[in-house]
C-alpha cells in the first residue's frame, strides 16, 4: 500500500473547519497536545508501516524545503 495523495475527503471544507474548530480556545500547549493525539489516533487507524513512513517522510520534507 502507498500513501494516497489524491483528494480523498468526503467533505474537505467541513473537515478543515472542524479541525480549526476543534482547537478553539486552546493555548498553544493544548493545541500541541491535541495535534499529538490526533496524529496518534490517525496513525493507528492507518496502521500500515509503508503508508505511515511515506507520510512522515512527505511531511518532514515539506518542512525542510521551507528552510531554503
Amino acid at each position: 500500500m502507498t500513501l494516497n495523495r489524491q483528494p480523498n475527503f468526503d467533505d474537505a471544507d467541513a473537515f478543515y473547519a472542524a479541525l480549526i474548530e476543534a482547537h478553539r480556545d486552546f493555548s498553544d500547549a493544548e493545541s500541541e497536545a491535541m495535534n499529538a493525539r490526533l496524529v496518534l489516533l490517525l496513525a493507528n487507524h492507518i496502521g500500515s508501516h509503508d503508508v505511515l513512513f511515506e507520510a512522515l517522510d512527505t511531511a518532514r520534507t515539506s518542512v525542510l524545503e521551507e528552510r531554503t
Binding site: A36, R37, N44
Partner: peptide, 17 residues
Amino acid sequence: RVFRDSVLRLAANEPFA
C-alpha cells in the same frame, strides 16, 4: 515529551495507545 505524554493520556481509555 509531548508525544510521550499524549500516548500516556490516551492509554487510559484507548487500548491502541
